[in-house]
Amino acid sequence: MISDFILKLISNPNFNGQPISMIEQQISNFVEQNKQQMSAIASQKFYPGLTGDKATERLIADIRTYISQSILNKAKQVVPSSLDLPTLPESLGIGSGETVLASTLLLYEKIAAHREARQMIDQYCILLDEHYIDRYTGAVYQEKGYMFNELFRVQKIHLDLPNMCEYIKLCAAITPVTAVKLAIPQVGAQPVNAYDLKDKPAQQKLYFDKLTQLVRSITPELNNELLAAALKVPLSATENNASPIGKYLAILFARAKDFRKGQKAEKGSETPDKSWFSVQIKNAAFMGFDKRMLEEFNRHAFTMKA
């Protein structure tokens, strides 16, 4: 009964096209804003045996479980079908693609319980589903401008376009682990993730060390290079350690977070991607994005009418 209700709630026309992780966020906001009424409804309608607050908590937990499972199911479907693993050259030294995929899905199983992490898994699925990496990396290779120079020369990944796309996708696949909240005694009592420590490089390093241990304990066979590349995504573009792929993926993950399926340009408006990149150019410093990359993304979005 409760799963039917959650399904009905998620299928609400108001949520049309929104990423499921965003729907979860909005339901949480609503419940938070209407705590008293929600307690009464939850205990009367869904959990008759529980008191108001307990019933609300249970409702939220059930919604969370349902959405986690939906995101995991989606990842299991989208990720394997979107990666072209056999094409990756051995010289990259990231090992077998199948191993990376297996490690990734195993990681997802373990981290999906964390809200921010499952949001990023959802965002990764959007990046794959909507071919963001293929489309924009293709444009980067065509223009051979700033981003090409950064990826190809600065990061020194000398790959042709299809392999570069696959490599970026694999880095992106590991990135959701950086959203897992961990308790770091040196930082504070509250668990934090890499994004909470964006402006604190020293504390961020402590977090990464702990996270690496955690990941290793789950999937010891996951390639080090790939994990190191993924751990650079949350870094601010101005940090010395920031890598071109990290800056590139940071922008794309943020784009996926605001993605709306089926959203089109309104009459008189710019297209969704063009609007998003253009706004982020103004917010680049605040968001810790590379402004020049955003300007190039903006140009590509305009050309692609995306």
């Binding site: 709630l9 609400n12 909005q26 339901i27 906001n29 605001d258 706004v279 103004k282 917010n283 968001m287």
Partner: peptide, 28 residues
């Protein structure tokens, strides 16, 4: 484009968004 939207997106990114996606009590 240059003032209101960036501010709106900043607010959203910093987690201050109170957006409930148009849900109402009737939906529950």
């Amino acid at each position: 484009n240059e003032i209101l939207l960036p501010e709106k997106m900043k607010k959203k990114a910093s987690g201050d968004s109170t957006d409930t996606g148009g849900l109402s009590m009737d939906d529950f």
